[in-house]
Simulated assay, not measured.
Amino acid sequence: MHEMSLCESLLTAMEEAAQTNGFAKVRRVRLEIGRFAGVEVQALRFGFDVVMRGSLAEGAELVVIDRPGTAWCFDCDETVEIAERHAPCPRCGGARMQANGGTEMTIKDLEVE
């Protein structure tokens, strides 16, 4: 389950931020996760609770913000939101699409003390 390693990386990033910015406790973490990032949110939530035990983020609330997938349509020359990787263009119905967004996982912000 790669979600556990994602949580370990998240903890490392929070520990580095705490050292740099001088906070001792994380109360809330808001993550933006792209629809095509390949992250199982339920598994991420489970891993988050396990990995954060005994850390500066123990008991922190995890807020997941779903980011849409996007693709470039060669037919109408536009970037559009898509629900699935191989979906047709919602504007023109064209099938010649190049996915170009929705694979990211980013820390949006932290609520700390």
Rank of each mutant, 00 (worst) to 15 (best):
R35I: 00
G69P: 00
F23K: 05
E58M: 10
T20G: 09
G34C: 09
F23E: 02
I82R: 00
N100T: 11
S5N: 14
E15P: 13
V64Q: 03
F74T: 04
N100A: 05
M105A: 07
S5T: 15
P88L: 01
V64N: 04
E84C: 07
G93I: 03
N21W: 12
M52W: 03
L10E: 03
Q19G: 14
F46R: 01
E81K: 08
T106Q: 12
P88R: 08
G54V: 14
S55L: 12
A43Q: 09
F36P: 02
R28A: 11
M52F: 15
T12L: 14
L110D: 12
R27C: 06
L10D: 00
G101N: 13
D49Q: 14
P68C: 02
R67P: 05
L6H: 10
F74I: 03
M14N: 14
E61S: 02
P68A: 07
A57G: 12
W72G: 09
S55M: 11
F74N: 05
D75S: 12
N21H: 15
K108N: 08
T12E: 15
V39A: 03
C73Q: 08
A83H: 13
G59I: 04
A87C: 10
A83C: 05
E3D: 14
F46D: 00
Q98V: 15
V112W: 06
G69E: 11
F48Q: 04
L11M: 10
L44K: 06
R53K: 12
A87M: 10
M97G: 06
A83G: 13
A57W: 02
R45E: 15
V63W: 03
L44D: 02
Q42I: 06
A87P: 11
A37N: 10
Q19F: 13
E3M: 09
P90Y: 01
E40H: 07
T70C: 03
S5Y: 15
E113P: 00
P90G: 02
A37Q: 08
G102K: 06
M52R: 00
T70Q: 08
G47T: 08
R85A: 01
A95F: 09
I82F: 03
A18R: 13
R85Q: 01
I65Q: 14
R96L: 13
R53I: 04
G59D: 02
A87Q: 09
R53F: 10
M4G: 07
A87Y: 00
T106P: 01
L31W: 00
A71P: 09
K108M: 03
F36H: 04
K25A: 14
V26F: 14
L10P: 13
T106F: 06
T12S: 15
M97T: 09
L44Y: 01
I65G: 03
M97Y: 10
L11S: 04
F48L: 02
M105C: 09
A99C: 05
A13P: 14
K108T: 05
L44A: 07
E61Y: 06
Q42K: 05
E78I: 10
E81A: 04
E61H: 11
A87T: 07
T106K: 15
Q98W: 11
I33E: 00
F36R: 11
R35S: 03
L31V: 08
M105F: 06
A43F: 11
G54P: 13
G59T: 05
V50E: 07
V80N: 02
A57T: 09
G102Y: 06
G69M: 02
G94N: 07
E84R: 14
T79R: 12
